[in-house]
Computed example of a mutant assay.
Amino acid sequence: MAFIFESDLKAFLFCLLQFVIAIVVSYSFSNYTNPEQRKLEKVAMLELKVEQTEKDIEQLRDLTRSLEGKYQNIESVHVPLVAFHVYNPLHTNLEVGQVIVYQTVPLNEGNGYDRKTGIFTTPVTGLYQFSAHICNQDNAMFVYAIVLEGETIALSTQRDMPSSCNTVNALTVASAGQQVSVQGVHMSKSYQVIENPHRKNSFNGVLLHRT
């Protein structure tokens, strides 16, 4: 009986030792694998964050492109400041087809008017308004016109006694680079235009809408 009890005790102790060894090995293995698993999890989370960041960047790029398009549309309808006012004609005796050159230029926004030639060149395409104010000599018939690229867009005939002044206006769409001027069309005397402190011959233009 003592031998049997002793053998059973040995078997029990052996099983207990195996159980303790298993626990120790399991604990050691878990301590070894958990840091590695945590590293893998961190890498996976970083990859997800990178992927989300790339998506956010792409959305920002789309938004930037959209805003740039809207800005370009705003720029296309923006009306720049284009306006001029000139007076004091260089010559008062004109020939048929001669451009009236105005010497005094108090306003020339956009630099479209050339004081040497008397010609206004449109800087941008759009809707413009032009006006010309002419004072004729006493009993001198004078026909003058606002001319755009060789085409008359406004015209007036004067033959008053004593002298008088008259204004013509024109609304027109002009392309960038086109030329506008005031020209003599027909006259009955050598001196047709009068300029003095009480009479100012002038030429004006303004961009109303850019197209």
Rank of each mutant, 00 (worst) to 15 (best):
M1S: 10
A2D: 11
F3I: 13
I4N: 05
E6N: 14
K10Y: 11
L13T: 14
L16Y: 12
L16I: 12
L17D: 15
Q18M: 14
S26D: 01
Y32P: 00
N34W: 09
Q37D: 06
K39L: 12
A44Y: 10
L46M: 15
K49Q: 11
K49W: 07
K49N: 06
V50N: 04
E51G: 01
D56K: 05
I57A: 10
K70Q: 14
Q72S: 13
H78F: 14
H78W: 12
V79F: 04
P80A: 14
P80F: 14
P80E: 14
H85S: 13
L94Q: 07
V96P: 02
Y102K: 08
Y102R: 07
Q103S: 13
P106W: 07
L107H: 09
E109H: 09
Y113M: 09
T117F: 07
G118C: 09
G126T: 03
L127F: 06
F130Y: 04
I134Y: 00
I134D: 00
N136L: 04
Q137I: 07
A145P: 01
I146N: 01
E149L: 04
E149T: 09
G150P: 02
M161E: 06
V168Y: 00
V168F: 00
V173H: 02
A174K: 02
S175F: 12
A176M: 09
S181A: 14
S181V: 04
V182M: 03
V185I: 15
H186V: 10
M187H: 15
S188Q: 12
S188F: 12
I194F: 09
P197W: 13
P197L: 12
P197H: 13
N201K: 12
S202W: 06
N204K: 03
N204W: 00
N204V: 01
G205S: 06
V206T: 11
